[in-house]
Nucleic acid binder design. Sequence first.
DNA 1: CCCTTACCTAGGCT
DNA 2: AAGCCTAGGTAAG
Length: 361
Amino acid sequence: MSSTTSLLSSFVVSDNLIQYSSGLIPISYTELNLKQTLLGGQSFRWNEQSPNEFIGVLKSYIIYLQHENENLHYTFYTNKSRSIDSNENDRQNETSRIIHNYFQLSIKLHDLFQQWCKSDVRFQNGLIPTGIRVLDQDPLENLISFICSSNNNVQRITKMVKQLCIEYGKEIGTINGIVYHQFPTIDELDKSNLETRLRELNFGYRARYIQQAIKYLKYTINDITFFDRLKSLSVKEARTELLKIMGVGRKVADCVLLMSLGKQDVVPVDTHIHSIAVTHYGQSKKLQLNTTNYNAISTFFEQLWQPFAGWAQAAAFSNELRSITTYKSIIQSTSLKRSISSYETHSQCKLVKREKKTFIN
DNA sequence: CCCTTACCTAGGCT
DNA sequence: AAGCCTAGGTAAG
Protein backbone atom coordinates (compact mmCIF):
# COMPACT_ATOMS: atom_id res chain seq x y z
CA MET A 1 0.00 0.00 0.00
CA SER A 2 1.16 3.51 -0.73
CA SER A 3 -0.20 6.90 0.21
CA THR A 4 -0.93 9.78 -2.11
CA THR A 5 -2.20 13.20 -1.21
CA SER A 6 -4.69 14.93 -3.43
CA LEU A 7 -6.00 18.45 -3.06
CA LEU A 8 -8.37 17.50 -0.27
CA SER A 9 -7.99 13.86 0.66
CA SER A 10 -5.21 11.45 1.25
CA PHE A 11 -5.47 8.14 -0.51
CA VAL A 12 -4.33 4.73 0.44
CA VAL A 13 -3.79 3.02 -2.88
CA SER A 14 -3.09 -0.68 -3.33
CA ASP A 15 0.29 -1.69 -4.71
CA ASN A 16 -1.20 -3.16 -7.87
CA LEU A 17 -2.36 0.29 -8.96
CA ILE A 18 -0.49 3.01 -10.77
CA GLN A 19 -1.48 6.57 -11.36
CA TYR A 20 -2.06 6.58 -15.09
CA SER A 21 -2.68 10.21 -15.85
CA SER A 22 -4.33 13.31 -14.45
CA GLY A 23 -5.63 16.62 -15.65
CA LEU A 24 -7.89 19.58 -15.11
CA ILE A 25 -10.83 21.03 -16.97
CA PRO A 26 -12.15 24.51 -16.20
CA ILE A 27 -15.92 24.25 -15.76
CA SER A 28 -18.39 26.23 -13.67
CA TYR A 29 -20.80 24.77 -11.15
CA THR A 30 -23.75 25.79 -13.28
CA GLU A 31 -22.32 23.69 -16.10
CA LEU A 32 -21.54 20.74 -13.83
CA ASN A 33 -23.05 19.71 -10.53
CA LEU A 34 -20.98 16.64 -9.81
CA LYS A 35 -23.09 15.25 -6.99
CA GLN A 36 -26.43 15.51 -8.73
CA THR A 37 -25.00 14.22 -11.97
CA LEU A 38 -23.16 11.23 -10.52
CA LEU A 39 -25.51 10.26 -7.70
CA GLY A 40 -28.82 11.34 -9.20
CA GLY A 41 -29.78 7.89 -10.40
CA GLN A 42 -28.16 7.85 -13.84
CA SER A 43 -25.12 5.87 -12.84
CA PHE A 44 -24.81 3.59 -9.84
CA ARG A 45 -21.05 3.33 -9.77
CA TRP A 46 -19.77 6.43 -7.96
CA ASN A 47 -18.66 6.78 -4.36
CA GLU A 48 -18.80 10.16 -2.72
CA GLN A 49 -15.65 10.92 -0.71
CA SER A 50 -16.70 14.44 0.22
CA PRO A 51 -19.26 16.83 -1.30
CA ASN A 52 -16.87 17.63 -4.14
CA GLU A 53 -14.95 14.40 -4.44
CA PHE A 54 -15.98 11.17 -6.11
CA ILE A 55 -14.38 7.88 -7.03
CA GLY A 56 -15.78 5.59 -9.69
CA VAL A 57 -14.91 3.29 -12.53
CA LEU A 58 -14.89 3.91 -16.27
CA LYS A 59 -13.61 1.18 -18.56
CA SER A 60 -10.52 -0.27 -16.88
CA TYR A 61 -9.79 2.86 -14.86
CA ILE A 62 -10.55 3.91 -11.34
CA ILE A 63 -11.17 7.63 -11.58
CA TYR A 64 -10.93 10.21 -8.86
CA LEU A 65 -12.82 13.43 -9.53
CA GLN A 66 -12.76 16.68 -7.69
CA HIS A 67 -14.56 19.88 -8.55
CA GLU A 68 -13.00 22.88 -6.87
CA ASN A 69 -12.71 26.56 -7.76
CA GLU A 70 -14.51 25.98 -11.03
CA ASN A 71 -12.01 23.34 -12.06
CA LEU A 72 -12.69 19.67 -12.53
CA HIS A 73 -9.61 17.71 -11.52
CA TYR A 74 -9.36 14.11 -12.55
CA THR A 75 -6.91 11.35 -11.78
CA PHE A 76 -6.92 7.99 -13.49
CA TYR A 77 -5.60 4.86 -11.81
CA THR A 78 -5.23 1.53 -13.45
CA ASN A 79 -3.87 -1.93 -12.72
CA LYS A 80 -0.14 -2.39 -13.25
CA SER A 81 -0.67 -5.62 -15.14
CA ARG A 82 -2.38 -3.72 -17.90
CA SER A 83 -0.12 -2.83 -20.78
CA ILE A 84 0.51 0.85 -20.34
CA ASP A 85 1.13 3.31 -23.11
CA SER A 86 4.51 4.78 -22.29
CA ASN A 87 3.81 8.06 -24.00
CA GLU A 88 2.56 10.46 -21.34
CA ASN A 89 1.12 12.81 -23.91
CA ASP A 90 -1.01 10.03 -25.38
CA ARG A 91 -2.25 9.09 -21.93
CA GLN A 92 -3.25 12.67 -21.25
CA ASN A 93 -5.13 12.88 -24.52
CA GLU A 94 -6.85 9.58 -23.86
CA THR A 95 -7.99 10.42 -20.34
CA SER A 96 -9.06 13.92 -21.27
CA ARG A 97 -11.14 12.49 -24.08
CA ILE A 98 -12.76 9.95 -21.74
CA ILE A 99 -13.83 12.68 -19.31
CA HIS A 100 -15.04 14.98 -22.09
CA ASN A 101 -17.07 12.18 -23.66
CA TYR A 102 -18.50 10.85 -20.40
CA PHE A 103 -19.77 14.27 -19.31
CA GLN A 104 -20.51 15.31 -22.91
CA LEU A 105 -18.74 18.59 -22.28
CA SER A 106 -19.19 19.87 -25.81
CA ILE A 107 -22.84 20.36 -24.89
CA LYS A 108 -23.34 23.66 -23.06
CA LEU A 109 -26.02 23.56 -20.38
CA HIS A 110 -26.25 27.34 -20.36
CA ASP A 111 -27.47 27.41 -23.94
CA LEU A 112 -29.94 24.61 -23.30
CA PHE A 113 -31.37 26.38 -20.25
CA GLN A 114 -32.03 29.48 -22.31
CA GLN A 115 -33.99 27.39 -24.76
CA TRP A 116 -35.97 25.61 -22.06
CA CYS A 117 -36.83 28.91 -20.35
CA LYS A 118 -38.60 30.06 -23.47
CA SER A 119 -41.16 27.29 -23.30
CA ASP A 120 -41.34 26.28 -19.65
CA VAL A 121 -42.00 28.71 -16.80
CA ARG A 122 -40.62 26.25 -14.29
CA PHE A 123 -37.20 26.75 -15.84
CA GLN A 124 -37.81 30.51 -16.05
CA ASN A 125 -38.68 30.68 -12.36
CA GLY A 126 -35.54 28.85 -11.34
CA LEU A 127 -37.44 25.88 -9.97
CA ILE A 128 -35.16 23.46 -11.76
CA PRO A 129 -31.53 23.20 -10.73
CA THR A 130 -28.67 23.68 -13.14
CA GLY A 131 -25.48 21.67 -13.51
CA ILE A 132 -27.13 18.32 -14.11
CA ARG A 133 -25.72 16.65 -17.18
CA VAL A 134 -26.69 13.47 -18.95
CA LEU A 135 -23.76 11.07 -18.82
CA ASP A 136 -22.73 9.08 -21.87
CA GLN A 137 -22.42 5.65 -20.32
CA ASP A 138 -21.42 2.20 -21.47
CA PRO A 139 -24.51 0.61 -23.06
CA LEU A 140 -24.19 -2.84 -21.49
CA GLU A 141 -23.62 -1.45 -18.01
CA ASN A 142 -26.51 0.94 -18.47
CA LEU A 143 -28.81 -1.76 -19.79
CA ILE A 144 -28.14 -4.22 -16.98
CA SER A 145 -28.28 -1.50 -14.32
CA PHE A 146 -31.68 -0.32 -15.48
CA ILE A 147 -33.02 -3.86 -15.75
CA CYS A 148 -32.14 -3.96 -12.05
CA SER A 149 -33.96 -0.69 -11.45
CA SER A 150 -37.48 -2.01 -11.92
CA ASN A 151 -39.62 -1.78 -8.82
CA ASN A 152 -36.51 -0.81 -6.92
CA ASN A 153 -34.75 2.03 -5.14
CA VAL A 154 -31.42 3.69 -5.87
CA GLN A 155 -29.71 2.36 -2.78
CA ARG A 156 -30.52 -1.23 -3.59
CA ILE A 157 -29.79 -0.86 -7.32
CA THR A 158 -26.36 0.47 -6.38
CA LYS A 159 -25.77 -2.52 -4.14
CA MET A 160 -26.84 -4.96 -6.83
CA VAL A 161 -24.65 -3.42 -9.52
CA LYS A 162 -21.74 -3.50 -7.11
CA GLN A 163 -22.34 -7.18 -6.38
CA LEU A 164 -22.47 -7.91 -10.09
CA CYS A 165 -19.10 -6.23 -10.61
CA ILE A 166 -17.51 -7.97 -7.64
CA GLU A 167 -18.81 -11.35 -8.73
CA TYR A 168 -18.12 -11.18 -12.47
CA GLY A 169 -15.98 -8.13 -13.29
CA LYS A 170 -12.19 -7.90 -13.38
CA GLU A 171 -10.67 -6.39 -10.26
CA ILE A 172 -8.76 -3.16 -10.85
CA GLY A 173 -7.44 -2.29 -7.40
CA THR A 174 -8.15 -0.92 -3.96
CA ILE A 175 -8.39 2.68 -2.80
CA ASN A 176 -9.06 3.55 0.83
CA GLY A 177 -10.06 -0.03 1.53
CA ILE A 178 -12.65 -0.15 -1.23
CA VAL A 179 -12.05 -2.66 -4.04
CA TYR A 180 -12.99 -1.45 -7.50
CA HIS A 181 -13.98 -3.72 -10.36
CA GLN A 182 -14.68 -3.24 -14.03
CA PHE A 183 -18.22 -3.81 -15.15
CA PRO A 184 -18.34 -7.38 -16.49
CA THR A 185 -18.48 -8.11 -20.21
CA ILE A 186 -21.14 -10.21 -21.90
CA ASP A 187 -18.73 -13.16 -21.98
CA GLU A 188 -17.96 -12.80 -18.29
CA LEU A 189 -21.69 -12.81 -17.53
CA ASP A 190 -22.41 -15.76 -19.79
CA LYS A 191 -22.46 -18.39 -17.04
CA SER A 192 -24.95 -21.24 -16.95
CA ASN A 193 -25.74 -20.56 -13.31
CA LEU A 194 -26.00 -16.78 -13.67
CA GLU A 195 -29.63 -16.64 -12.67
CA THR A 196 -29.12 -18.96 -9.71
CA ARG A 197 -26.18 -16.97 -8.46
CA LEU A 198 -27.95 -13.64 -8.89
CA ARG A 199 -30.91 -14.97 -6.97
CA GLU A 200 -28.53 -15.90 -4.18
CA LEU A 201 -27.36 -12.32 -4.31
CA ASN A 202 -30.96 -11.17 -3.82
CA PHE A 203 -31.60 -9.87 -7.32
CA GLY A 204 -35.07 -11.41 -7.15
CA TYR A 205 -36.97 -11.82 -10.39
CA ARG A 206 -34.45 -9.57 -12.16
CA ALA A 207 -31.97 -12.45 -12.06
CA ARG A 208 -33.88 -14.22 -14.82
CA TYR A 209 -34.17 -11.03 -16.88
CA ILE A 210 -30.42 -10.53 -16.76
CA GLN A 211 -29.65 -14.14 -17.65
CA GLN A 212 -32.07 -13.96 -20.59
CA ALA A 213 -30.74 -10.60 -21.73
CA ILE A 214 -27.16 -11.86 -21.72
CA LYS A 215 -28.04 -15.05 -23.61
CA TYR A 216 -29.98 -12.99 -26.13
CA LEU A 217 -27.13 -10.54 -26.71
CA LYS A 218 -24.51 -13.26 -26.96
CA TYR A 219 -26.28 -15.95 -28.98
CA THR A 220 -29.15 -14.31 -30.83
CA ILE A 221 -27.67 -10.91 -31.57
CA ASN A 222 -24.10 -12.19 -31.60
CA ASP A 223 -22.69 -8.88 -32.82
CA ILE A 224 -20.20 -6.83 -30.85
CA THR A 225 -21.24 -3.77 -32.82
CA PHE A 226 -24.89 -4.19 -31.77
CA PHE A 227 -25.10 -1.05 -29.64
CA ASP A 228 -23.10 0.98 -32.17
CA ARG A 229 -25.53 -0.09 -34.87
CA LEU A 230 -28.43 1.10 -32.70
CA LYS A 231 -26.82 4.53 -32.47
CA SER A 232 -27.12 4.99 -36.19
CA LEU A 233 -30.80 3.99 -36.23
CA SER A 234 -33.70 6.31 -35.55
CA VAL A 235 -35.02 6.47 -32.02
CA LYS A 236 -38.06 4.46 -32.97
CA GLU A 237 -36.07 1.75 -34.72
CA ALA A 238 -33.47 1.49 -31.97
CA ARG A 239 -36.18 1.33 -29.31
CA THR A 240 -37.89 -1.52 -31.15
CA GLU A 241 -34.63 -3.51 -31.05
CA LEU A 242 -34.09 -2.83 -27.34
CA LEU A 243 -37.65 -3.89 -26.49
CA LYS A 244 -36.86 -7.37 -27.76
CA ILE A 245 -34.53 -7.89 -24.82
CA MET A 246 -36.10 -9.67 -21.84
CA GLY A 247 -36.60 -7.35 -18.90
CA VAL A 248 -36.53 -4.28 -21.11
CA GLY A 249 -39.77 -2.36 -21.33
CA ARG A 250 -40.36 1.10 -22.62
CA LYS A 251 -38.84 2.91 -19.66
CA VAL A 252 -35.58 0.93 -19.57
CA ALA A 253 -35.30 1.15 -23.36
CA ASP A 254 -35.62 4.92 -23.17
CA CYS A 255 -32.99 5.14 -20.46
CA VAL A 256 -30.54 3.26 -22.66
CA LEU A 257 -31.43 5.41 -25.67
CA LEU A 258 -30.82 8.61 -23.74
CA MET A 259 -27.87 7.65 -21.55
CA SER A 260 -25.93 5.29 -23.80
CA LEU A 261 -26.95 5.74 -27.41
CA GLY A 262 -26.82 9.52 -27.75
CA LYS A 263 -30.55 10.02 -28.23
CA GLN A 264 -30.63 13.33 -26.36
CA ASP A 265 -34.29 14.08 -27.00
CA VAL A 266 -35.72 10.92 -25.44
CA VAL A 267 -37.64 11.45 -22.20
CA PRO A 268 -37.89 8.29 -20.09
CA VAL A 269 -41.08 8.39 -18.06
CA ASP A 270 -40.81 6.86 -14.63
CA THR A 271 -43.03 7.30 -11.60
CA HIS A 272 -41.27 10.56 -10.74
CA ILE A 273 -41.63 12.13 -14.16
CA HIS A 274 -45.17 10.85 -14.20
CA SER A 275 -45.76 12.56 -10.88
CA ILE A 276 -44.15 15.76 -12.17
CA ALA A 277 -46.49 15.64 -15.16
CA VAL A 278 -49.42 15.37 -12.79
CA THR A 279 -48.23 17.92 -10.24
CA HIS A 280 -46.80 20.62 -12.49
CA TYR A 281 -48.09 20.11 -16.00
CA GLY A 282 -51.74 19.33 -15.56
CA GLN A 283 -51.80 15.62 -16.29
CA SER A 284 -54.71 13.73 -14.81
CA LYS A 285 -53.84 11.91 -11.61
CA LYS A 286 -55.99 8.93 -12.39
CA LEU A 287 -54.08 8.05 -15.53
CA GLN A 288 -51.79 5.13 -14.90
CA LEU A 289 -48.72 4.49 -16.98
CA ASN A 290 -49.81 2.24 -19.82
CA THR A 291 -48.25 2.45 -23.26
CA THR A 292 -50.59 5.14 -24.52
CA ASN A 293 -50.17 7.38 -21.49
CA TYR A 294 -46.45 6.82 -21.51
CA ASN A 295 -46.36 8.03 -25.10
CA ALA A 296 -48.49 11.04 -24.29
CA ILE A 297 -46.35 12.17 -21.39
CA SER A 298 -43.07 11.43 -23.15
CA THR A 299 -44.11 13.21 -26.33
CA PHE A 300 -45.44 16.17 -24.37
CA PHE A 301 -42.09 16.70 -22.64
CA GLU A 302 -40.11 16.03 -25.81
CA GLN A 303 -41.97 18.85 -27.50
CA LEU A 304 -41.97 21.18 -24.50
CA TRP A 305 -38.26 20.84 -23.82
CA GLN A 306 -36.73 20.47 -27.24
CA PRO A 307 -33.96 20.35 -28.09
CA PHE A 308 -32.22 17.91 -25.71
CA ALA A 309 -35.45 17.14 -23.89
CA GLY A 310 -33.78 14.20 -22.17
CA TRP A 311 -31.39 16.62 -20.50
CA ALA A 312 -34.23 18.77 -19.26
CA GLN A 313 -35.84 15.62 -17.90
CA ALA A 314 -32.68 14.77 -15.95
CA ALA A 315 -32.73 18.22 -14.36
CA ALA A 316 -36.44 18.15 -13.60
CA PHE A 317 -36.15 14.66 -12.21
CA SER A 318 -33.32 15.60 -9.92
CA ASN A 319 -35.40 18.45 -8.58
CA GLU A 320 -38.23 16.09 -7.83
CA LEU A 321 -35.95 13.79 -5.85
CA ARG A 322 -34.74 16.55 -3.56
CA SER A 323 -37.89 18.60 -3.08
CA ILE A 324 -40.25 15.72 -2.30
CA THR A 325 -43.36 17.88 -2.55
CA THR A 326 -42.14 20.61 -0.25
CA TYR A 327 -43.97 23.30 -2.14
CA LYS A 328 -47.38 23.55 -3.65
CA SER A 329 -47.60 23.04 -7.34
CA ILE A 330 -48.72 25.52 -9.89
CA ILE A 331 -50.98 23.61 -12.18
CA GLN A 332 -50.33 24.67 -15.73
CA SER A 333 -53.20 24.91 -18.13
CA THR A 334 -51.17 23.04 -20.71
CA SER A 335 -52.91 19.87 -21.67
CA LEU A 336 -51.06 16.69 -22.39
CA LYS A 337 -53.91 15.39 -24.43
CA ARG A 338 -53.08 17.83 -27.17
CA SER A 339 -49.76 16.17 -27.76
CA ILE A 340 -50.93 12.61 -27.87
CA SER A 341 -49.31 10.79 -30.71
CA SER A 342 -48.84 7.10 -30.92
CA TYR A 343 -45.64 6.13 -32.64
CA GLU A 344 -45.50 2.54 -31.51
CA THR A 345 -47.67 0.50 -33.80
CA HIS A 346 -49.68 -2.39 -32.56
CA SER A 347 -47.99 -4.82 -34.89
CA GLN A 348 -44.56 -3.85 -33.60
CA CYS A 349 -45.56 -4.50 -30.02
CA LYS A 350 -46.92 -7.90 -30.87
CA LEU A 351 -43.78 -8.80 -32.78
CA VAL A 352 -41.66 -7.83 -29.83
CA LYS A 353 -43.64 -9.98 -27.45
CA ARG A 354 -43.51 -12.97 -29.72
CA GLU A 355 -39.76 -12.68 -30.06
CA LYS A 356 -39.27 -12.48 -26.33
CA LYS A 357 -41.57 -15.38 -25.73
CA THR A 358 -39.91 -17.72 -28.18
CA PHE A 359 -36.48 -17.09 -26.83
CA ILE A 360 -35.68 -20.04 -24.62
CA ASN A 361 -32.72 -20.83 -22.34
C1' DC B 1 -56.29 -1.11 -26.65
C1' DC B 2 -56.90 -1.14 -21.55
C1' DC B 3 -56.52 -3.21 -17.25
C1' DT B 4 -54.71 -6.66 -13.68
C1' DT B 5 -51.67 -9.40 -11.48
C1' DA B 6 -47.39 -11.45 -10.02
C1' DC B 7 -42.76 -10.83 -9.39
C1' DC B 8 -37.98 -10.34 -5.30
C1' DT B 9 -36.18 -7.65 -1.68
C1' DA B 10 -34.89 -4.24 1.90
C1' DG B 11 -36.12 -0.66 4.65
C1' DG B 12 -39.33 2.45 6.67
C1' DC B 13 -43.62 2.84 8.79
C1' DT B 14 -47.56 1.51 11.66
C1' DA C 1 -43.98 -7.42 16.61
C1' DA C 2 -45.74 -8.85 12.33
C1' DG C 3 -47.84 -6.84 8.52
C1' DC C 4 -48.15 -3.15 5.09
C1' DC C 5 -46.15 -0.14 1.74
C1' DT C 6 -43.05 1.38 -1.65
C1' DA C 7 -38.97 1.93 -4.38
C1' DG C 8 -36.96 5.40 -11.36
C1' DG C 9 -41.13 -1.62 -14.19
C1' DT C 10 -42.03 -5.68 -16.99
C1' DA C 11 -44.23 -9.86 -18.72
C1' DA C 12 -48.14 -12.41 -19.22
C1' DG C 13 -52.95 -12.97 -19.50
